[in-house]
Simulated scan of single mutants.
Amino acid sequence: MYVCLCHGVTDRDIRAAVCNGATRMRDLAKELGVATDCGRCACAANQLRKDTLLQISEPELAAA
Score class of each variant (00 low, 15 high):
residue 2 Y to L: 15
residue 3 V to D: 02
residue 3 V to Q: 02
residue 3 V to P: 00
residue 3 V to Y: 01
residue 4 C to E: 09
residue 5 L to W: 12
residue 5 L to D: 08
residue 5 L to Y: 15
residue 6 C to P: 02
residue 7 H to K: 15
residue 7 H to A: 13
residue 7 H to E: 15
residue 8 G to C: 06
residue 8 G to S: 13
residue 8 G to F: 06
residue 9 V to W: 02
residue 10 T to E: 08
residue 10 T to Q: 07
residue 10 T to H: 09
residue 11 D to E: 15
residue 12 R to E: 14
residue 14 I to M: 08
residue 14 I to Y: 07
residue 15 R to G: 01
residue 15 R to D: 10
residue 15 R to A: 14
residue 16 A to W: 01
residue 16 A to R: 13
residue 17 A to Q: 05
residue 17 A to F: 08
residue 18 V to T: 08
residue 18 V to H: 09
residue 19 C to S: 09
residue 19 C to T: 02
residue 19 C to H: 07
residue 20 N to Q: 13
residue 20 N to A: 08
residue 21 G to C: 06
residue 23 T to L: 11
residue 26 R to F: 04
residue 26 R to H: 06
residue 27 D to I: 03
residue 28 L to V: 05
residue 28 L to G: 03
residue 28 L to M: 09
residue 30 K to C: 01
residue 31 E to C: 03
residue 32 L to R: 10
residue 32 L to K: 10
residue 33 G to T: 01
residue 33 G to I: 08
residue 33 G to A: 06
residue 33 G to L: 05
residue 34 V to H: 06
residue 34 V to Y: 02
residue 36 T to S: 11
residue 36 T to F: 00
residue 37 D to Q: 13
residue 38 C to G: 05
residue 38 C to M: 04
residue 38 C to K: 07
residue 40 R to D: 10
residue 40 R to I: 06
residue 41 C to R: 02
residue 42 A to T: 12
residue 42 A to Q: 15
residue 44 A to T: 13
residue 46 N to V: 00
residue 46 N to S: 15
residue 47 Q to I: 04
residue 47 Q to P: 00
residue 47 Q to E: 11
residue 47 Q to V: 10
residue 48 L to E: 01
residue 48 L to F: 00
residue 50 K to R: 15
residue 53 L to N: 04
residue 54 L to Q: 14
residue 54 L to I: 12
residue 54 L to F: 11
residue 56 I to K: 14
residue 58 E to T: 05
residue 59 P to M: 06
residue 60 E to H: 12
residue 60 E to A: 15
residue 62 A to Q: 13
residue 62 A to K: 13
residue 62 A to M: 11
residue 64 A to H: 10
residue 64 A to R: 14
